[in-house]
Simulated assay, not measured.
Amino acid sequence: MASFENLLYDLDTTSGILTLTLNRPTKLNALNGATISEIGKAMQQALDDQQVRGIILTGSGDKAFVAGADIAELAALSEPLARRASEQGQEVFCMIEESPKPVVAAVNGFALGGGCELAMACHLRIAAENARFGQPEVNLGLIPGYGGTQRLTQLIGKGKALELMLTADMVKADEALRLGLVNHVVPAAELLTFTRELLSRILSKAPLAVGLVIDSVNAYFADERHGYQTEANAFARCFASDDFKEGTQAFLEKRPAAFTGK
């Protein structure tokens, strides 16, 4: 098992919920290259570990989920290195988005720049009432580089996404909820409890089917894939699974299903 300098890796073996906490509190959990690399390694470890069934991604402290990228590190990049940094971030965030194990962001404060992009790569986003979201890169003469131009547009629509990215405006949690950027807003003290309860409800369902829902929805946004055909293939695959047999039998027998993910 890998060790991490900028992440806390906490697996509850009873529930199967892994909590990954960005842990650079003196930097408001700002993303640097090392932290993005560690997120990728932690995600791969989680995907390979059968004990991990679902993942919560959050930040340490009560001020920031991730307050952005490490500006000092960015300022030193050449054009070729900047392109590689963008590609590395996109690769890691796509790993989150494409995970068959559900990943939920518990946004406990500022989610700006790369932090907003990280939250958007997760399948669901739960925001504390003090959370703030934004893509302020144009203030630095930059644009979002870790998938933000694509995912923000997918989540809230072209017009509003352009407005937020072009003005660099931040939005409060309640506005993020209205826009569809987050799924729920809760008091900060209840954030992790609510997120765990929501994820536990998801984990009570058939794991194979959960993963195939994620894959089919992602196919809608992938130019190289046909969403309807992906859905049909996944639908058919479910019929060959033990979970389908168990789910239908449990329904007919009026009892809770005992899914195995097979």
Score class of each variant (00 low, 15 high):
Gly148Ile: 08
Gly148Asn: 05
Gly148Gln: 01
Thr149Cys: 11
Thr149Gly: 11
Thr149Leu: 14
Thr149Asn: 07
Gln150Trp: 01
Gln150His: 08
Gln150Tyr: 04
Gln150Ala: 13
Arg151Ala: 09
Arg151Pro: 09
Leu152His: 02
Leu152Lys: 00
Leu152Pro: 03
Thr153Ser: 07
Thr153Val: 04
Thr153Ile: 04
Thr153Trp: 01
Leu155Phe: 12
Leu155Thr: 04
Leu155Met: 11
Ile156Gln: 12
Ile156Pro: 14
Ile156Val: 13
Gly157Lys: 05
Gly157Arg: 05
Gly157Trp: 02
Gly157Phe: 03
Lys158Phe: 08
Gly159Trp: 13
Gly159Ala: 14
Gly159Asp: 14
Gly159Pro: 07
Lys160Cys: 03
Lys160Ala: 13
Lys160Met: 14
Ala161Ile: 03
Ala161Asp: 07
Ala161Val: 06
Leu162Pro: 01
Glu163Thr: 10
Glu163Ser: 11
Glu163Ala: 12
Glu163Asn: 08
Leu164Pro: 08
Leu164Phe: 05
Met165Cys: 08
Leu166Ala: 11
Leu166Glu: 11
Leu166Trp: 04
Leu166Gln: 13
Thr167Ile: 04
Thr167Ser: 13
Ala168Val: 07
Ala168Asp: 13
Ala168Glu: 12
Ala168Cys: 12
Ala168Asn: 12
Asp169Val: 07
Asp169Pro: 06
Asp169Ser: 15
Met170Ser: 14
Met170Ala: 12
Met170Thr: 15
Met170Ile: 06
Met170Pro: 09
Val171Tyr: 01
Val171Gly: 01
Val171Ala: 00
Lys172Cys: 13
Lys172Leu: 13
Ala173Cys: 08
Ala173Asn: 03
Ala173Ile: 10
Asp174Met: 14
Glu175Cys: 09
Glu175Phe: 06
Glu175Ile: 10
Glu175Asp: 11
Glu175Met: 12
Ala176His: 04
Leu177Gly: 02
Leu177Cys: 06
Leu177His: 09
Leu177Ser: 00
Arg178Val: 07
Arg178Gly: 11
Arg178Tyr: 03
Leu179Val: 12
Leu179Lys: 05
Gly180Cys: 15
Gly180Glu: 14
Leu181Met: 10
Leu181Asn: 03
Leu181Asp: 05
Leu181Tyr: 00
Leu181Lys: 02
Val182Asp: 12
Val182Lys: 02
Val182Ile: 13
Val182Ser: 06
Val182Arg: 02
Asn183Thr: 08
Asn183Arg: 03
His184Gly: 00
His184Cys: 05
Val185Ile: 09
Val185Ala: 02
Val186Glu: 02
Val186Ser: 03
Pro187Ala: 06
Pro187Arg: 07
Pro187Trp: 12
Pro187Ser: 06
Pro187Asp: 08
Pro187Asn: 07
Ala188Pro: 00
Ala188Val: 00
Ala188His: 03
Ala188Asp: 05
Ala189Pro: 00
Ala189Thr: 04
Glu190Ala: 12
Glu190Lys: 11
Glu190Gln: 14
